[in-house]
Design a protein around this nucleic acid. Structure first.
Length: 485
DNA sequence: TTTTGAGTTGTTCGA
DNA sequence: GTCGAACAACTCAAA
C-alpha cells in the first residue's frame, strides 16, 4: 500500500486542488498535514487577525476532511523535521504540495526537497510564473504585455476544474495537535473562513444578470458602496483557487447583459491578472522585498519620521478619508483597493515615509496580506516598482475623498468624531468656520486633528525628492541599471 | 539591430 | 461644469 503526504500551506481547499489530486492519483492513502512553523508565527508580519483567519480556516478544512472520512494532521516545529517524522510514522513515500513563490516558502521547499521526495504542483496561480515570458524567455516587467501573453495561453474552463473528492482514505493513527484557538478571530473581522464560504461569495459576485461584477468598474472606486468582491482573504489562503476565480470571471464576461457590464467583468478579470503578475515578479525578482525594483530610487532619502508614521498608523492625520481607511484596516483587517491606494499614496507622497514601513504595517494587519501583491501595490504607488505610477501622479487626498465617498458615508462610519460635520466640510474639515465647528461638536485640533501636512506643499517636496534621487543615481553610477536581486 | 509605440488606477490649468 | 492638454523622460516590448 502506498502512502503520500499532502502538505497544506496556502491551499486550504478540497476542490480544484492539484496537489491533493496528484497525491490521490499516485497513492492509496493520503495524509493531509499542516505544520505550524514557529518561525513564521513569531514573525512581526504575522499579524493576529491573519493568523486567526488561518487557524479558523484549518478547523474548517479539518471539518471538511472528516466529513469525507479523513482528517487534518497538525504538527508544530521545523517543517523539515516534522515532515520527516511524519514520513517515518506513516510510512509515506512522497510529499505533494502546491508550489509557492514567496522566498521564505521556497527556501523551505528546497530544504524539504533535499531531505525527502517532494513533488510540487501548480495552483497558486493559473499560469506558473515561468510560463508567461517574453519571446527571449525573460520575464515581463510591464503589466499590459504580461496580461496579453497571459490571456493568449489556454485558460481554465468549468470542466477543467478538479472536483472535490467525495470520499478520502483515513490516514493512519498518528499524533496530531489540536488547532490553536489563539489568537481568536475578532468579530470585527468581516470574513467567515473556509472553502464553502469562498465558493458562496464567488457565486454571489459573478452569478446572475444583476451580479456585482457587472457594476465593478464603478463600484470598486466607491468606498461607500463597497463594490469589490471581498475574495482576497480566500485567494490568500487558497480557500478559493485562482482558476476557480478566473472561471467565474470568464463566465460572467460570456453572459454579460451589456457592453458596460462586460467591461466591468473584464476589469475584475484584470485584477486577477495583476495578482498573477505580482506573483511572477516576486518569483523572478525576490529582491523587491528588500528594496525598490528600480535601482535609481534605492538611495532615496525618506524625510518622514516615526511620529508621522505613527499618526498614519493610528488614523489621526487630519485627512478624514485617510483616517477612515486606516481605522477600517486596523479594526477589520481589510480595506478596499481604492482605500489602499489613497492611504499608501498619502504615506509615501504626502509624508515622504519609506514605502517599506507601510508595506510592513499592511502585512501585519491585512487578513489577505500576501507578500507578492502587497509589495507590488506599494512599489507601484511609491513609483519605485515595475511599471510604476509616474512620479507626478500624486493623489490629492481631498479630490480622492470627494470621488470615493461623495456623501461622506464611509468617513462618518469610521471616524465618529466627524459624525455631525456638514457633508460639505467632511472631506476637508479644517475649512469649517469656528461656529460650525462648535455646532458640529468637532473643534479642529481638539476633537479631530488639524491636517498634519499641507498637500500642495507636500506634493512639491516629494517631486523634488524623487527628482534628486534620480539625478543622484544618474550622476553617481555609469551602470545603466543594476539587476534586481 | 533599430525603430516605434505604448505605458492601471491622477491632477491641474486654461479654454 | 466640462473638456483636452500638459505634466518628463524613460524603459520596455515587439515589429
Amino acid at each position: 500500500m502506498t502512502i503520500s503526504l499532502w502538505w497544506v500551506r496556502r491551499d486550504l481547499r478540497l476542490s480544484d486542488n492539484q496537489a491533493l489530486a496528484a497525491a490521490l492519483a499516485q497513492a492509496e492513502t493520503v495524509v493531509p498535514v499542516f505544520v505550524l512553523d514557529p518561525v513564521l508565527l513569531a514573525a512581526p508580519e504575522a499579524g493576529a487577525k491573519r493568523v486567526a483567519f488561518l487557524m479558523a480556516g484549518l478547523r474548517q478544512l479539518d471539518r471538511e476532511l472528516r466529513a469525507r472520512g479523513s482528517r487534518l494532521i497538525v504538527r508544530r516545529g521545523d517543517p523539515v523535521q516534522e515532515l520527516q517524522l511524519l514520513m517515518a510514522e506513516t510510512g509515506a513515500e512522497a510529499i505533494w504540495a502546491e508550489e509557492d513563490v514567496w522566498p521564505y516558502a521556497r527556501r523551505r521547499e528546497a530544504r524539504v526537497s533535499q531531505a525527502m521526495p517532494l513533488y510540487l504542483t501548480g495552483g497558486l496561480t493559473v499560469h506558473p510564473p515561468d510560463a508567461v515570458a517574453k519571446s527571449d524567455g525573460r520575464p515581463y516587467t510591464v503589466f499590459t504585455p504580461f496580461s496579453r501573453a497571459w490571456r493568449s495561453r489556454p485558460l481554465p474552463s468549468a470542466q477543467s476544474l478538479l472536483p472535490a473528492p467525495q470520499r478520502l482514505p483515513a490516514p493512519p493513527e498518528v499524533p496530531s495537535l489540536p488547532i490553536p484557538f489563539e489568537p481568536a478571530l475578532p468579530d470585527t473581522v468581516p470574513f467567515a473562513p473556509g472553502e464553502a464560504e469562498a465558493q458562496r461569495l464567488l457565486r454571489q459576485f459573478v452569478e446572475g444578470e444583476d451580479a456585482p461584477i457587472y457594476r465593478y468598474a464603478r463600484g470598486r472606486d466607491r468606498l461607500d458602496l463597497d463594490g469589490t468582491s471581498h475574495l482576497s482573504p480566500y485567494l490568500r489562503f487558497g480557500m478559493l483557487s485562482a482558476r476557480q476565480a478566473v472561471v467565474g470571471a470568464l463566465s460572467a464576461i460570456q453572459s454579460a447583459p451589456g457592453k458596460e457590464a462586460r467591461r466591468s467583468a473584464e476589469i475584475w478579470l484584470n485584477e486577477l491578472i495583476w495578482r498573477e503578475f505580482y506573483m511572477a515578479i516576486l518569483a523572478h525578482f525576490p529582491g523587491v522585498l528588500e528594496h525598490s525594483f528600480r535601482s535609481e530610487f534605492r538611495d532615496m532619502v525618506w524625510e518622514g519620521d516615526e511620529a508621522a508614521f505613527a499618526a498614519w498608523c493610528e488614523g489621526r492625520t487630519g485627512y478624514p478619508i485617510v483616517d477612515a481607511a486606516m481605522r477600517q484596516l486596523v479594526q477589520t483587517g481589510w480595506m478596499p483597493n481604492r482605500a489602499r491606494m489613497i492611504v499608501a499614496s498619502f504615506l509615501v507622497k504626502d509624508l515622504l515615509v519609506d514605502w517599506r514601513w507601510g508595506e510592513r504595517f499592511f502585512m501585519h494587519h491585512l487578513v489577505d496580506g500576501d507578500p507578492a501583491a502587497n509589495n507590488g501595490g506599494w512599489q507601484w504607488v511609491a513609483g519605485t516598482g515595475t511599471d510604476a505610477a509616474p512620479y507626478f501622479r500624486i493623489f490629492n487626498p481631498v479630490v480622492q475623498s470627494q470621488k470615493a465617498d461623495p456623501h461622506g458615508i464611509y468617513i462618518r462610519r469610521w471616524v465618529p468624531e466627524l459624525e455631525r460635520v456638514p457633508a460639505g466640510y467632511l472631506h476637508a474639515p479644517w475649512k469649517m468656520p469656528d461656529d460650525i465647528q462648535r455646532r458640529a461638536g468637532c473643534r479642529i485640533g481638539v476633537d479631530y486633528p488639524a491636517p498634519m501636512v499641507d498637500h500642495a506643499w507636500a506634493r512639491e517636496r516629494t517631486i523634488a525628492a524623487f527628482t534628486r534621487a534620480r539625478q543622484r543615481a544618474r550622476g553617481g553610477s555609469d551602470s545603466k541599471k543594476d539587476d534586481v536581486q
